[in-house]
């Protein structure tokens, strides 16, 4: 197993700043905007963005929630994985709001498709925009695109992209992990 760092903590800090400014550019005073992190890994990015927003724009009040999509997944009963749900915590109404849906890696798009289903059970938002740290652009299974992207990468399916966060994993970095190809022919 080989791993390669594609983003280090400096680059991630820059990206978070850039995403904050880009989002601010479209949403101006954040009157109608809400941040929603997708459980479990999207919440880490959402929290970082939320904290940075508070530092950059202390006057804006942005509601922030967490959304768990376990019960909405389309691979339930279709894969060997066992699913354990995380907390959903949305203390505000999303009716008519501009939702910024936040996840760490956009890959097949199926997680976000499930997240949209889950989100709509809380009301009808005015619009939903997707924020991701990494966009693996070549492997989409459903027609879903992110509006705010930290970094776009080209990777193959057998590779894994892992995001590490300071709070949880001890450091900020993004790695591509490649499983060695084993030739079984004699």
């Amino acid at each position: 197993m080989q791993s390669r760092v594609i983003l280090d903590h400096k680059q991630i800090a820059l990206i978070i700043d850039r995403l904050c400014y880009q989002i601010t550019e479209t949403h101006k005073d954040f009157k109608e905007a809400v941040l929603i992190g997708v459980q479990p890994r999207g919440v880490d990015l959402a929290e970082r963005l939320f904290d940075r927003f508070k530092q950059l724009f202390p006057d804006y009040k942005i509601p922030y929630g967490k959304l768990d999509i376990t019960f909405y997944r389309d691979d339930f009963r279709r894969s060997d994985k066992a699913f354990s749900p995380s907390v959903t915590d949305i203390e505000f109404s999303i009716e008519g709001k501009n939702v910024l849906l936040i996840d760490d890696v956009l890959f097949t798009g199926r997680t976000i498709r499930s997240a949209l289903d889950a989100l709509l059970d809380f009301g009808r938002p005015n619009d939903v925009e997707l924020v991701v740290l990494i966009d693996r652009r070549l492997q989409r299974h459903v027609p879903i695109q992110a509006k705010y992207i930290g970094k776009t990468i080209d990777s193959i399916i057998s590779e894994k992209v892992k995001v590490f966060w300071q709070d949880k994993d001890g450091m900020d970095k993004v790695e591509i992990i490649t499983e060695p190809i084993i030739n079984v022919e004699n």
Binding site: F71, Y72, F76, D117, D121, F122
Partner: peptide, 9 residues
């Protein structure tokens, strides 16, 4: 306890 109490699992 949500307004829509149903999930598609």
């Amino acid at each position: 306890n949500r307004p829509i109490k149903k999930v598609p699992s």
